[in-house]
Simulated assay, not measured.
Amino acid sequence: MKNAIKISMLALTLSLMSFSVNPIYKDSIVKEVDASPISWKSDLIDVGQIPQGTPKLIEYEFINTGKATVIITNVQGSCGCTATDYTKEPITPGKTAIIKATYNASNVGAFTKTVTVTTNAEETPKVLTFKGIVLAKV
């Protein structure tokens, strides 16, 4: 019985040694980013005054100013009152694309909303903003 315990302990010790951590070397990996820069025509749009109950279309335009193709992976409005649409095809260098947001102007008063755009061109998502005032129906 004692021999079985000793053999089990030895086997356990040897198996745990196989899970040892490899040392990390600072200069061992160099990653090159292939992201292509994009230039937004405007990241803030003031739509002014809009009548209540009338959806408002907002369009953001950008150009691929880099050397690699840009792919839009996600576009998300900040609330359920904003529907979004975007170019699904890759945007080659020098080409432009449009992000569309349609605001449902149901609540009266001033508003500020955002649209978050995720692409392979930027490390963090781009936050676009639109604002305005919804006027009550008379």
Rank of each mutant, 00 (worst) to 15 (best):
Met1Leu: 07
Lys2Thr: 10
Ala4Gln: 12
Ile5Thr: 07
Met9Trp: 05
Leu10His: 01
Ala11Ile: 15
Ala11Met: 10
Met17Ala: 15
Met17Arg: 05
Met17Ser: 12
Phe19Met: 14
Phe19Asn: 01
Ser20Pro: 04
Val21Lys: 13
Asn22Gly: 05
Ile24Gln: 05
Tyr25Trp: 07
Ser28Met: 02
Ser28Ile: 05
Lys31Phe: 11
Glu32His: 08
Ser39Cys: 11
Lys41Gln: 13
Lys41Asp: 14
Ser42Ala: 14
Asp43Arg: 15
Leu44Gln: 11
Asp46Trp: 12
Val47Trp: 08
Gln49Trp: 04
Ile50Gly: 10
Ile50Asn: 04
Gly53Phe: 04
Gly53Ile: 13
Thr54Ile: 09
Thr54Leu: 06
Pro55Phe: 10
Ile58Asn: 14
Glu59His: 03
Glu59Leu: 02
Glu61Thr: 11
Ile63Ser: 01
Gly66Leu: 01
Thr69Ala: 10
Ile71Leu: 14
Ile72Met: 02
Thr73Ile: 12
Ser78Met: 08
Ala83Met: 08
Asp85Lys: 05
Tyr86Met: 10
Tyr86Thr: 05
Thr87Trp: 08
Lys88Gln: 14
Pro93Ile: 05
Pro93Ala: 07
Thr96Phe: 08
Ile98Pro: 03
Ile99Val: 15
Ile99Arg: 05
Lys100Asp: 01
Lys100Pro: 07
Lys100Arg: 07
Ala101Tyr: 11
Thr102Asn: 08
Thr102Arg: 02
Thr102Phe: 04
Tyr103Lys: 06
Asn104Thr: 08
Ser106Trp: 15
Asn107Ser: 08
Val108Gly: 06
Val108Trp: 08
Ala110Pro: 01
Ala110Ile: 04
Phe111Asp: 00
Thr112Gly: 07
Lys113Glu: 13
Val115Arg: 09
Thr116Gly: 14
Val117Ser: 10
Asn120Asp: 12
Ala121Met: 06
Ala121Arg: 09
Glu123Asp: 06
Val127Leu: 11
Lys131His: 10
Lys131Ile: 06
Gly132Thr: 12
Val138Leu: 13
Val138Cys: 11
